[in-house]
């Protein structure tokens, strides 16, 4: 059996969980094993209905006083661990999100079982062979794992979520796992809703990014101006946040934000692998750089060679002129 842990908010499953479920369905077809899902909290019953189109035969709903409340990582892991003890799946899948990783790691630790993070493909067997991302996806690793159950997170966006060809009507099976009191020592006690004022970097359609070449905090004014004209957001490289020129919330990359705009304009950024994994989701890349040998040029659609301090003001003026015509 393959068990997929599905994350939800008030009964709406998240996209990454549907990606994991889609990989689960592919593997279920390959192995002939049944696919089942687990959600935590009574509100998850609503998610169970929505999951029908994604193919699990059974949706387990872990319920109980503590589990019906806000997220508690260790308790969620304990609920998943209990489902694993009861059903002995060969494979457990989770979404490749922070919360997916956290829940899965708590379950793996509670069960003393191996966990493999950020998988892009899995061949269940003895041993189970996985292809997984390292370095944010710059490098792939082929690895093998032994154990009665292997817990795997599915790398974000490695699989496209797709409904099953034939929607099923899964059996909803509530259960009340015993969860030790200490598993609730850590729980979400408050939420601060996102600031929906400006354009968020992660969701912006246009991102204007600046790197070391911008030279200092004042240099970002022209990037802000261009982003403003195009309805986009400003981003930056790690050199920029480390120097304190811009806040970390604007950093693009492996340890910053992953962006997926229609257009990314990267100015004075060399294109280190850790930066590039953050903008892999960009549909188009326009580079402004004075170095024709900069690694980022290998990823670009369009390049302007030259000093960004001269190029960007000219571009801003030309965009203004074009919009005023």
């Amino acid at each position: 059996m393959i068990l997929a842990y599905v994350d939800h908010r008030d009964g709406a499953p998240d996209d990454a969980s549907l990606e994991a479920l889609t990989l689960g369905r592919t593997l279920a077809e390959r192995t002939g094993w049944p696919l089942e899902a687990l959600v935590v909290g009574r509100a998850g019953r609503a998610a169970a209905e929505a999951l029908g189109v994604h193919g699990p035969a059974v949706v387990h709903v872990a319920e109980g006083d503590g589990l019906d409340g806000p997220y508690a990582p260790q308790a969620w892991g304990a609920a998943l661990a209990e489902a694993v003890r009861a059903a002995s799946p060969k494979l457990v899948l989770s979404p490749g999100t922070d919360r997916g990783h956290e829940t899965l790691a708590h379950a793996a630790a509670a069960l003393d079982l191996p966990m493999v993070a950020n998988c892009v493909d899995i061949s269940p067997g003895e041993p189970t062979v996985v292809l997984r991302q390292r370095w944010g996806g710059t490098v792939l690793e082929e690895a093998e794992a032994d154990g009665p159950t292997i817990l795997c997170s599915v790398a974000l966006h490695a699989v496209q979520a797709q409904p099953a060809p034939a929607p099923a009507d899964p059996e909803v099976r509530p259960f009340a796992p015993p969860v030790p009191e200490e598993a609730f020592r850590v729980r979400v006690i408050d939420r601060v809703e996102p600031d929906r004022g400006g354009v968020s970097l992660a969701e912006a359609k246009v991102v204007v990014g600046g790197g070391r070449g911008v030279g200092g905090p004042e240099g970002f004014r022209v990037l802000e101006e261009l982003a403003g004209l195009l309805g986009g957001a400003v981003g930056c490289s790690r050199v920029v946040t480390s120097a304190g020129w811009r806040p970390h919330a604007e950093q693009i990359g492996q340890t910053g934000t992953r962006i997926a705009p229609d257009l990314y304009i990267a100015c004075g950024i060399s294109g280190a692998t850790q930066h590039m994994v953050g903008c892999r989701g960009a549909k188009r890349l326009l580079v402004v750089n004075e170095d024709p040998e900069a690694p980022i040029i290998a990823h670009a659609d369009w390049v302007v060679l030259g000093d960004l301090h001269e190029v960007l003001p000219a571009v801003v003026a030309a965009v203004r002129a074009a919009t005023q015509d």
């Binding site: 659609d301 001269e310 030309a318």
Partner: peptide
């Protein structure tokens, strides 16, 4: 990659790209 040009003279080409998008 397509080289749009060198320095500020490339600005009109950049606007063309922005327009195409």
């Amino acid at each position: 990659a397509e080289i749009l040009g060198h320095g500020p003279e490339a600005a009109p080409k950049v606007v063309e790209v922005l327009r195409s998008l």
